[in-house]
Design a protein around this nucleic acid. Structure first.
Lengths: 227, 227
DNA sequence: GATTTATCGATAAAATTTTCTCCATTAAAA
DNA sequence: TTTTAATGGAGAAAATTTTATCGATAAATC
């Protein structure tokens, strides 16, 4: 019997730090650096070195004492772990401002995401091309997603249309939803939902700002100089 | 002696849930609903009711048994708590794709954010207007930010320029940075930094997708149907 | 070659966040 | 008026995440 590596369930927190490490490591690799220690990485981000070590553990890479980890090995293992080595095709629904920006974001390729087409119900948009990608009417999504085996759907429609867009996608066999709309979404348990909501991040920012202003205190946010 | 309300330090987790509640509550208010219970709110998002209660506690609103909370009161208190009642002026640096999208995102007004101008060093962009907002050369930022008392800076430049953009802003008196670049940033402790990195969210998504695929298991992500 | 230093890996401790439990309160029902 | 059911509030418990500690190991230094 062959033992496949058991898929480790990793905390969101760790998962979200991995791209930061990756970006740093790619820079180091470009500089020709061979090895790097958790201590060094931690210093860059003002993290705890132990935390970095724990995070890197999930990639399966092992370091050597006094030397650290192989940079190239880490880069590859993090990409592998995140699923960024194999490109995933994705559909985008909602070709408004945000949708356009996402369609034009070239870096997604690096992250294994390939937006193959956009969908919108606005007749002025349908038929046009945005950054080389065709804008199709929403009702063409189900057939196409089945034919092309697309499993990721990006939601960049206004909040009030989000649920119906998601329902359509789920029925069409989409297995993972990346949601930019500020709406709660209902999906079956076997579909993956990841929210990327600007408002949440903004909430943290403006609340901090208000607090700073309210108190004129300068040590309350001593933790915010971190990454 | 007058006791000012002591500014409560609230966890990021709570802070990030508040905008979700707010959005829901605004919907309920539009429907004419007067009161709402934590139980109802929790049900919408598949959260724990106690968690919702604890989150709402920070706003200072008190509910009444058997009735719940006043919807209008909650909406106002959450906005107040997040600092979304008073508009904050902001500068945006980097008028690329993402920058453009942010400039065109009308909802920011609702969230108390008012982008007053954009800055870029690309001569083809300087002098143009994007969604009515002027694009200025970066070297005009310091003077303007002081004159206009702008305290928020939005970073949407490529990673390699992020640090220098931030340094410029910090020197110009910017007090809070909203960073979209996938780079680690160094800032003084009294400046607020909030990162809004798409790659982090994408990492969670693609990793989940890979895990699901690797194992063909359907109960490993039983938590992903939540908000 | 011995000693020192930096680092990893594993485990334990601390801190934080989430969930649970119980009780007092309140409006509605009997 | 009394009873009942739903709810908020407070605090305890559980789970998760982060940080600290310690022995082993490998390179650098003496």
């Amino acid at each position: 019997m062959i033992f496949k590596e058991k898929p480790v369930i990793v905390s969101r927190s760790t998962l979200k730090r991995l791209p930061l490490y990756l970006h740093l490591l790619e820079g180091l690799m470009a500089q020709g650096l061979e090895h790097v220690s958790c201590t060094q990485i931690a210093k860059e981000f003002d993290f705890d070195p132990t935390q970095v070590r724990k995070d890197l553990e999930v990639t399966g890479e092992v370091g050597t004492a006094r030397i650290g980890f192989r940079v190239a090995g880490l880069v590859d293992s993090i990409k592998e772990f995140l699923g960024w080595n194999n490109a995933h095709d994705a559909f985008l629904v909602g070709a408004g401002n945000l949708g356009k920006a996402l369609l034009g974001y070239r870096d997604f390729e690096k992250y294994g995401l390939n937006i193959v087409a956009a969908f919108d119900n606005d007749p002025r948009k349908v038929g046009t091309r945005i950054f080389g990608k065709e804008v199709l009417p929403l009702n063409k999504l189900p057939n196409l997603s089945k034919r092309m085996h697309v499993h990721i759907g990006i939601v960049s429609v206004p909040a009030e249309y989000a649920q119906s867009a998601v329902d359509l996608m789920v029925n069409a066999g989409i297995k993972a939803i990346w949601n930019f709309a500020p709406a709660p979404l209902r999906i079956p348990a076997d579909v993956i939902l990841e929210n990327a909501r600007l408002t949440q991040s903004l909430a943290v920012l403006t609340n901090n700002l208000k607090r700073n202003r309210d108190q004129g205190d300068n040590n309350a946010n001593s933790d915010v100089s971190k990454i």
